[in-house]
Amino acid sequence: MSDVLLTLYCAAADGELIADHIGEAQQTMVHLRNEQVFGRDFADASPSERVMGQLRRCALEVIVPHDAIAPLVASINALGRAAPVRWHTVPILSAGRLS
Protein backbone atom coordinates (compact mmCIF):
# COMPACT_ATOMS: atom_id res chain seq x y z
CA MET A 1 0.00 0.00 0.00
CA SER A 2 1.48 3.39 -1.00
CA ASP A 3 2.00 6.29 1.46
CA VAL A 4 0.72 9.77 0.83
CA LEU A 5 1.57 13.20 2.23
CA LEU A 6 -1.54 14.63 3.87
CA THR A 7 -1.48 18.44 4.28
CA LEU A 8 -4.12 20.15 6.39
CA TYR A 9 -4.66 23.93 6.57
CA CYS A 10 -6.44 24.98 9.68
CA ALA A 11 -6.89 28.04 11.87
CA ALA A 12 -3.85 28.78 13.99
CA ALA A 13 -5.92 28.18 17.10
CA ASP A 14 -6.81 24.65 15.94
CA GLY A 15 -3.25 23.64 15.04
CA GLU A 16 -2.16 21.96 18.24
CA LEU A 17 -5.46 20.20 18.74
CA ILE A 18 -5.36 18.61 15.30
CA ALA A 19 -1.65 17.81 15.54
CA ASP A 20 -2.17 16.00 18.84
CA HIS A 21 -5.08 14.11 17.40
CA ILE A 22 -3.16 12.95 14.31
CA GLY A 23 -0.15 12.04 16.41
CA GLU A 24 -2.26 9.83 18.65
CA ALA A 25 -4.23 8.31 15.81
CA GLN A 26 -1.30 7.52 13.53
CA GLN A 27 1.60 7.22 15.98
CA THR A 28 3.75 9.24 13.65
CA MET A 29 5.37 12.59 13.53
CA VAL A 30 3.44 15.67 12.40
CA HIS A 31 5.03 18.77 10.88
CA LEU A 32 3.34 22.01 11.88
CA ARG A 33 3.97 25.42 10.28
CA ASN A 34 2.41 28.79 11.00
CA GLU A 35 1.53 30.62 7.81
CA GLN A 36 0.13 33.98 6.76
CA VAL A 37 -2.20 33.65 3.84
CA PHE A 38 -3.06 36.66 1.74
CA GLY A 39 -5.89 34.87 0.11
CA ARG A 40 -8.67 35.98 -2.17
CA ASP A 41 -11.19 33.68 -0.62
CA PHE A 42 -12.14 34.71 2.90
CA ALA A 43 -14.94 32.18 3.25
CA ASP A 44 -13.03 30.37 6.03
CA ALA A 45 -11.85 33.55 7.74
CA SER A 46 -12.87 34.64 11.20
CA PRO A 47 -14.10 38.23 11.62
CA SER A 48 -10.72 39.37 12.92
CA GLU A 49 -9.01 37.78 9.90
CA ARG A 50 -11.39 39.58 7.60
CA VAL A 51 -10.58 42.83 9.42
CA MET A 52 -6.86 42.36 9.09
CA GLY A 53 -7.21 41.03 5.51
CA GLN A 54 -5.07 38.00 6.15
CA LEU A 55 -5.65 34.47 7.35
CA ARG A 56 -3.41 33.17 10.10
CA ARG A 57 -3.26 29.52 9.16
CA CYS A 58 -1.46 26.47 10.37
CA ALA A 59 -0.19 23.85 7.92
CA LEU A 60 0.11 20.29 9.23
CA GLU A 61 1.91 17.62 7.23
CA VAL A 62 1.91 13.95 7.93
CA ILE A 63 2.83 10.88 5.84
CA VAL A 64 0.22 8.18 6.22
CA PRO A 65 -0.91 5.11 4.28
CA HIS A 66 -3.41 5.98 1.58
CA ASP A 67 -6.23 3.98 3.10
CA ALA A 68 -5.82 5.76 6.44
CA ILE A 69 -6.81 9.10 4.91
CA ALA A 70 -10.55 8.69 4.97
CA PRO A 71 -10.89 7.67 8.66
CA LEU A 72 -8.32 10.27 9.68
CA VAL A 73 -10.15 13.11 7.91
CA ALA A 74 -13.44 11.88 9.34
CA SER A 75 -12.01 11.91 12.87
CA ILE A 76 -10.59 15.42 12.39
CA ASN A 77 -13.98 16.52 11.14
CA ALA A 78 -15.47 15.28 14.38
CA LEU A 79 -13.09 17.38 16.51
CA GLY A 80 -14.43 20.58 18.17
CA ARG A 81 -12.62 23.12 16.00
CA ALA A 82 -12.85 26.90 15.70
CA ALA A 83 -12.69 27.13 11.92
CA PRO A 84 -12.96 24.98 8.78
CA VAL A 85 -10.00 22.85 7.70
CA ARG A 86 -8.86 22.34 4.13
CA TRP A 87 -6.78 19.32 3.16
CA HIS A 88 -5.14 17.61 0.23
CA THR A 89 -2.89 14.64 -0.38
CA VAL A 90 0.00 14.08 -2.73
CA PRO A 91 1.57 10.72 -3.37
CA ILE A 92 5.04 9.99 -2.04
CA LEU A 93 7.03 8.91 -5.01
CA SER A 94 10.16 8.20 -3.09
CA ALA A 95 11.55 8.80 0.39
CA GLY A 96 14.79 8.17 2.26
CA ARG A 97 17.15 9.28 5.04
CA LEU A 98 20.66 10.61 4.64
CA SER A 99 22.96 10.52 7.62
Binding site: R40, V51, M52
Partner: peptide
Protein backbone atom coordinates in the same frame (compact mmCIF):
# COMPACT_ATOMS: atom_id res chain seq x y z
CA UNK B 1 -11.43 40.48 -3.35
CA UNK B 2 -10.29 41.78 -0.03
CA UNK B 3 -12.96 41.61 2.65
CA UNK B 4 -15.06 44.72 3.14
CA UNK B 5 -14.09 44.74 6.81
CA UNK B 6 -10.46 44.99 5.77
CA UNK B 7 -11.18 48.05 3.63
CA UNK B 8 -12.91 49.72 6.54
CA UNK B 9 -10.12 48.78 8.91
CA UNK B 10 -7.49 50.18 6.58
Amino acid sequence: HRPRLNHIFR
